[in-house]
């Protein structure tokens, strides 16, 4: 186990104890099932944290409120011009306060793998363990928006290759803070995230690079309009670092529609513009995601 991962697990454990000890009366109460309003748990982002598709929100995974422990699992596919991507993961939400998540990502280079000299269908993969704590506020009911801080430990599976293309490391930790609010009077949700990261393409192309090897501050945001109880549409933005000399990296955008097919099942379809990835520009296409939450 690497030092970074040990640190993250330690931080997560401390956060869990802090959560339970902050509210002694809450932990004495029996756990109860269910209770979040439809769609207010968000969906799983690409890196496993609950939020929009591209970025975390200050919400906690699962349908539980402060009385319970929520669970969610997801699968996401992205088909852009030259690449296929899928990820899958699980998340646990403790008393709507602390979220622990795991996601595995797989990025297939298809024919571009041949061009890059890696071989056809060469795939980059990555494991991500995340922890997020809602430190204040509430998405729906409080005047104060939900505010959360989080960290994501990422371990790339192709260390030798990502170093060969200029990355300085095959593992890294992102730190972020999110502020999210559902404005019921307008049925509009706004969320913003600031992230400190060295990750190239979320870490799928390693961490740091020949151009830059220091943490940079990135901004991410979502805006969603809830059309009906079951349907929300919106757009997202995510700025990205640009550390690698040979592979320019662009900011990301998407337009999405999320549907609560069932109380426990949310389906999301998005049109995503991921810009230039691994030397090939114009990577646009569809994102499909299914999330089951309890």
């Amino acid at each position: 186990m690497s030092l970074n991962m040990t640190r993250l697990l330690l931080a997560a454990t401390m956060a869990l104890f802090a959560t339970l000890s902050l509210s002694p009366t809450a932990s004495a109460r029996p756990l109860r099932h269910g209770g979040k309003l439809l769609l207010t748990n968000g969906i799983a982002s690409l890196e496993g944290a609950s939020g929009g598709g591209l970025t975390p929100w200050a919400v906690i995974a699962g349908n539980e409120t402060d009385e319970g422990i929520g669970l969610s699992g997801h699968g996401t596919m992205v088909e852009v011009k030259d690449y296929d991507y899928w990820s899958a993961g699980v998340a646990v939400g403790f008393r709507d306060r602390l979220e622990l998540s795991y996601a595995h990502q797989n990025f297939n280079t298809n024919d571009i793998g041949t061009v890059l000299g890696l071989g056809k269908d060469y795939a980059f993969s990555q494991d991500i363990i995340g922890a997020k704590v809602r430190v204040a506020g509430d998405l729906v009911y409080d005047r104060l928006p939900a505010i959360a801080i989080g960290a994501q430990y990422k371990k790339n599976g192709q260390g030798a290759v990502v170093r060969a293309i200029g990355a300085q490391d095959d593992e890294g930790v992102d730190y972020y803070a999110s502020v999210s609010k559902l404005f019921l009077s307008r049925s509009i949700l706004l969320s913003g995230t600031a992230r400190l990261t060295k990750a190239n393409q979320m870490g799928l192309l390693g961490f740091g690079g020949d151009k830059q090897d220091s943490y940079g501050l990135q901004f991410e945001g979502s805006a969603a309009w809830q059309l009906s109880r079951r349907v929300a549409i919106g757009g997202e933005f995510r700025s990205k670092p640009d550390n690698l000399g040979i592979a320019r990296e662009d900011d990301w955008f998407d337009l999405f529609a999320a549907v609560a097919v069932h109380r426990n099942l949310t389906a999301t379809v998005a049109y995503a513009d991921l810009g230039s990835i691994a030397t090939v520009k114009g990577q646009r296409g569809l994102l499909l995601s299914l999330q089951a939450a309890f």
């Binding site: 409120t65 402060d66 009385e67």
Partner: peptide, 23 residues
Amino acid sequence: QRKDMNRLVELLQEAMRAEKIDF
């Protein structure tokens, strides 16, 4: 509890849907 209030909100939403009130 928070969850009870959320449940009542859901029941209110059901009643408003039954009355076909704009979302």
